[in-house]
Simulated scan of single mutants.
Amino acid sequence: MNATEPSERPASAPTTGRAGVKRSIDLVASAVTVPAWAAYRTSAAVVGAERAFPGFAQLFALLPGLTGTTLRRAFFRQTLRACGRDVHVGFGALLTSPEATLGARCYVGPYCVLGAVDVGEDALLGSAASVTNGGRQHGIDRLDVPVREQPGEWPRVSIGRDVWVGDRAVVMANVGEQAVIAAAAVVTGPVKPRQIMAGVPARVIGERGAETLATQAAAREPSGLN
C-alpha cells in the first residue's frame, strides 16, 4: 500500500488542520478588534472601565452569525478579566462588566445577561439566562428614599465547571460544578456540586450521577448466592 494513501495518514491530521485554521481566524479577529479595544481603553481612561465597557459590549452583541461570535470572543479576550479559548457568546448576549471571567469552551446563549461573574470551563448558559451579582443589589428598607438611591450588596457569583443553566433561568448565587439549573428556575441560594435544581425559588429535585453511583454500589454488594 502506498504511504500517501488516505488510510495511511495520521488520524490527527484533520483535527490539527482545523485547530490551525481556528487559530488563524482568531488571530485575524484579534487584529480586526484592535481599533475597538483602543477606543475602549481611551473611553475607560476618561469615564472608567465599568462605565465604558457596557456600550462596547452592546455594540458587539449586535453582530450576527459566526462572524459576530468570532469577533465577540476576540474583543472579550482583550477586555475581560479572563476569557478562555473557544468561548461562545451568542447574539444579543450582554456582558455588563469587564470584571467577568469566561472559562474555556463555555457557552453563553443568545440574550444572556451577565454581571461581574465567573463562568467556569465547559459551562452552558441557555438562551436569555441571567447571572446577577446577588439578589440585594438595591436596598429596600427605607420608604423615604427611592430604591435606586439605597445602598445594596454586590457579591461575586460563580458558575462552576460543566454546569448547565437552562433557558431564562435567573441565578443569584454560586453554583457548584456539574450542577444543572432547570429552565426558568430562580436560584436564590448556593447550589452544591451536581445538584439538579428547578422551580421558583429553585429547590433540589435530584443529583447528577446518583443513579450511576447506586448501580455501582448494588453491583459491589454480595449476591447471597453460594
Rank of each mutant, 00 (worst) to 15 (best):
Cys106Pro: 00
Ile205Lys: 03
Gln195Lys: 05
Gly166Phe: 02
Phe53His: 07
Ala82Cys: 03
Met172His: 10
Val200Ile: 14
Leu59Tyr: 12
Ala129Met: 01
Leu124Ala: 10
Gln195Trp: 05
Thr15Leu: 08
Ala169Tyr: 03
Ser7Val: 13
Arg203Tyr: 03
Glu149Pro: 06
Asp144Trp: 00
Leu102His: 09
Ala100Glu: 08
Thr69Leu: 09
Thr33Gly: 05
Ser12Ala: 14
Ala29Val: 13
Ala93Trp: 12
Phe76Gly: 09
Asn174Cys: 08
Ala184His: 14
Glu207Asp: 08
Thr42Ser: 07
Gly120His: 03
Thr33Glu: 07
Gln78Cys: 09
Val187Asp: 05
Phe56Trp: 15
Ala123Asn: 06
Ala36Met: 15
Ala169Lys: 05
Leu80Pro: 01
Ser97Asp: 09
Glu99Cys: 02
Ala13Arg: 09
Gly92Trp: 06
Arg73Phe: 02
Arg81Lys: 14
Pro201Gln: 13
Ile181Trp: 03
Thr215Met: 05
Ser43Ala: 15
Phe53Thr: 15
Ala182Glu: 13
Val113Pro: 09
Gly160Ser: 09
Ala61Asp: 00
Ala169Leu: 11
Arg142Asp: 04
Arg168Gln: 15
Ala31Asp: 07
Ala129Gly: 02
Ser24Gly: 14
Thr101Gln: 14
Val175Arg: 00
Val32Phe: 11
Arg142Cys: 02
Ala19Asp: 15
Gln78Asp: 03
Val131Pro: 15
Arg148Ala: 13
Gln78Thr: 10
Ala74Tyr: 00
Thr188Pro: 12
Cys112Asn: 08
Glu149Thr: 06
Tyr107Phe: 15
Val32Leu: 15
Glu207Arg: 07
Pro222Phe: 06
Pro146Asn: 05
Arg220Asp: 12
Ala57Ile: 04
Arg18Tyr: 13
Arg9Thr: 10
Ser223Glu: 11
Thr212Cys: 09
Ala11Lys: 06
Glu50Gln: 13
